[in-house]
Design a protein around this nucleic acid. Structure first.
Lengths: 337, 337
DNA sequence: CTGTTAGCGCCTTCAC
DNA sequence: GTGAAGGCGCTAACAG
């Protein structure tokens, strides 16, 4: 039932070539024929079959965005920016979830890359190490998010996780906190986000001569609210509870806030809390949450720009884009207000 | 550089047909050749070009999911379920944002539908009226979410918004509330979600003989936290403030909670608050939020099932799937605890 | 400026 | 069981 280029051509009495020229806004079509053809297109309600076009041209104008989980606010906010900015570039976004497992990251990456369904891929990697990635030798333009791997062989966009963590902990120390707990996400090999943030924390403690208390570090299996809630409970049940908690993302922190509320422990008076990511919710939580992170719009914009450049054929050494980030000091960590 | 079916065939010394048979697990391939071909596939690392396959077969195994905004928790949670369930069906999901504007809903719908990039579409419509939709005569299987239009000409999956609102308000009345405010989303033509919820509220009030107070209804332009915050401020600034607030989704309610906290008004003691959607955050807000809605996994599952059935060629009258919903009574509305 | 031809990579009807 | 040929709808040479 679908109207094809041929149908339009036959209807007007020109060759398919001419119709194609009109559809693609090529020069060298006489105004008269252009009008004629356009009329036929409108009349028959013709739309080019993008599949056929993609097959022919070898490009699809679709990019794949692989992220751990769409229902984690950081990623949904990022996905939003991605879709929005992609749209301004005339691109569509195909989203798939990796659940943060290395196998699934590898699998999706290779499936997407080989199937020619997308022109390039943006991967928010959690489990994948730089080495493993290098072995894969991705066949498609690829931009990595959220992890800075030394000697990485692919483009990536990130921000200075170590420095951000350092500044957050320094802020807590400046506020007089001395027993600083950490709610960390799973340890991964290599330079995973969680490890970088841990390093920043320790560096700040060391610089201030405040002891790092390993017994006040809890590692959670995932980055969810529930995990933050559980981890906080665990911390309180230990002898000598903390006077501050650095959670490695905002939802973990929000889970912790919830538990503290239930136990009747006031924040920040008795325990200060900080997060990471600056998700929308951190401005509305009770109390509002101190956090740090880059602008998500920046992340999306830069990642797409680098990717588009590669798709356009740019060759050259892998780019490492480090975005600026900012600290948002809010009620959850400000003692004197 | 890409390896094609032909390359594999040439490498083994069989016809493309045979390779295709192996790839697609057809009967009637001798075990010997199957093994041989499979070996060549592995060796050359061949992957079928999905674009070519789709063009040939007329199906893409991709479904489009059009939603207002990915960074609104309800939709990101729903998208998560959609992607996950689609995966079990061997489908990929192409997500696009409509920002809730009718023009963009129409545009994306027709672009996607004609371009043959997807086999079917699930649309979480906000602005689109049933009538407008009927005029469009979508050329592709389409399932509508979140709005029940009378005499609709397309399949849709929803739940009983009127009844859910009625039960929430009845609950508030049972708790002794009498001055019940409403933070509603934009009024739209037809049977938009917001209108249905409003009707449910009024019906509950009427049934209990409690007056509906139009001066305590605020309509917000969007469904965001900030709007809930602003609307709540507006309500408090009016003479005779409410003793309960029904927000038409959870993020509006969370915005309202935030403002009430800043004004030092205790919830639920002085003002009770309820939302809609049962987003993850409603279990962690302070206080936890009373809310109502269907299981998002159900929504995704049923929508996909109906869509897949249509894609498979099922004809028949449009389906109207009404999902069960549940009330989650939590701290924000329970006076006696 | 426009028509003709070929082919992107795959699946599938028809033969053998 | 397997081979040969054709075409899904489009665009990119190459004429003219």
């Amino acid at each position: 039932v679908a109207v094809t280029l041929r149908d339009v051509a036959a209807h007007v009495g020109v060759s398919p070539r001419t119709v194609s020229n009109v559809v693609n806004n090529f020069r060298y079509v006489s105004p008269a024929t252009r009008i004629l053809v356009q009329a036929a297109i409108d009349e028959l309600d013709y739309r080019p079959n993008l599949l056929a076009r993609s097959l022919r041209q070898g490009r699809t104008a679709v990019i794949g965005f692989l992220l751990p989980e769409l229902d984690v606010p950081y990623f949904s906010e990022l996905a939003h920016e991605m879709v929005e900015h992609a749209h301004t570039l005339g691109l569509t976004v195909l989203i798939d979830e990796t659940t943060g497992s290395q196998e699934r990251e590898v699998e999706l990456l290779s499936v997407l890359a080989r199937a020619r369904q997308v022109d390039g891929i943006i991967l928010s990697a959690i489990g994948l190490s730089g080495r493993r990635l290098a072995e894969l030798r991705p066949t498609l333009p690829l931009v990595l998010l959220g992890e800075r791997t030394t000697g990485s062989t692919v483009d990536h966009v990130t921000f200075d996780n170590v420095e951000a963590a350092r500044q957050l902990v320094k802020h807590l120390i400046d506020q007089g906190r001395r027993r600083i707990a950490v709610i960390a996400a799973p340890a991964s090999p290599g330079f995973a986000t969680s490890n970088l943030r841990m390093r920043g924390c320790q560096s700040a403690l060391w610089a201030a001569g405040v002891p790092y208390l390993p017994e006040l570090t809890v590692r959670t299996p995932r980055w969810h609210r529930t995990e933050g809630y559980r981890a906080m409970a665990e911390l309180l049940d230990r002898p000598n509870p903390p006077d501050a908690v650095v959670a490695f993302n905002d939802v973990l922190a929000i889970g912790a806030l919830r538990l503290l509320h239930e136990r009747g422990i006031s924040v920040p008076q008795r325990i200060a809390v900080t997060g990471f990511d600056n998700i929308e919710d951190s401005r509305f939580s009770i109390p509002t949450l101190t956090t740090a992170g880059p602008e998500k719009a920046d992340v999306a914009r830069r990642a797409l720009d680098v990717l588009v450049e590669r798709i356009a054929g740019h060759t050259g050494p892998p780019r490492a884009v480090a975005l600026p980030f900012s600290l948002q000091l809010r009620d959850s960590s400000l003692s004197s207000r």
